[in-house]
Design a protein around this nucleic acid. Structure first.
Length: 257
DNA sequence: ATGGCAATGTTTCATTGA
């Protein structure tokens, strides 16, 4: 079982790359973020032709999440958003697939520490923790994948001094991320020895990618039964290369049957 | 072994991202 999460930064622009990546990697389940598409424009037909059923919650211009699953897998109990947290922004999609509960998330960016959007991000994180507590109670096999917009530790940052206290790295954001782990989830990436300076996002500007000036802000969290089955967790930095890449690379976990 | 912002809207620049 291969489970992936990828912020594609516009699915309409990235569809050719996504299709090529699906063909090359054949993940079983994929959480997509920043589709930036109204539902009526979602490329469900193209994905079906590639062998994937799609569920999605989109909006024009901003945000938008989707969950792809290989057609042989049954997808059920699809749910959009965070219960009890009214939000126009499409940032959460959950479904039951292959005996596990998969939650795809696109956490708010936060813009700048102290801003209104930063406050929204922290409130959003608290609401997500509440939701995951409930999901975990119902589904012991829980995976949460997506763009968390937090670099959990300094080793997830190319230049910790430069980023100290900045949005994506501030202590309140890191505490909000740790509160998700405290629900009973593991950051799958840290279940294994990893190469230093492994990141999932690089700014489009200032040669950030070739200089590897990145952050690790995309994650897949696993509950204990799934962590026990996890044999690998990695970031596909190759997907950041070439023409018209997303600024994020996909993150993947392998789960033994 | 990569590349010097990108995507969207209704544009002729503003906004957002991270």
């Amino acid at each position: 079982m291969l489970l992936a999460a990828w912020n594609v930064n516009s699915l309409s622009v990235r569809l050719p790359r996504l299709l090529a990546w699906l063909a090359a990697n054949r993940p079983d389940v994929v959480c997509l973020q920043e589709t930036k598409l109204a539902d009526e424009k979602f490329p469900a037909r193209e994905l079906a032709a590639a062998g994937y059923a799609a569920h999605f919650a989109g909006q024009k211009t901003y945000n938008g999440v989707a969950l792809l699953a290989q057609e042989a897998l049954h997808v059920g109990d699809v749910a959009i958003g965070i219960p009890g947290f009214p939000d126009e922004q499409k940032r959460v999609i959950a479904a039951t697939v292959a005996g596990m509960r998969v939650v795809g998330v696109y956490v708010p960016n936060g813009q700048a520490v102290g801003s209104e959007k930063y406050r929204y991000k922290l409130d959003w994180y608290a609401a997500l923790a509440g939701m995951l507590r409930g999901e975990l109670a119902r589904h012991p096999a829980l995976a949460v994948g997506g763009d968390f917009n937090v670099a959990p530790e300094d080793r997830d940052v190319h230049d910790p001094a430069l980023w100290a206290g900045q949005v994506l790295c501030s202590e309140p954001e890191r505490a909000a991320f740790r509160a998700l782990l405290a629900v009973g989830l593991a950051d799958s990436f840290r279940l294994f020895d990893q190469p230093e300076k492994t990141f999932s996002w690089w700014d489009y500007r200032m040669l950030a990618f070739p200089k590897n000036h990145g952050l690790r802000i995309d994650h897949i969290l696993l509950s204990p039964p799934l962590a026990a089955r996890c044999t690998a967790s990695r970031i596909d930095r190759n997907a950041r290369k070439g023409e018209k890449p997303s600024d994020h690379a996909p993150v993947l976990v392998e789960l033994r049957d």
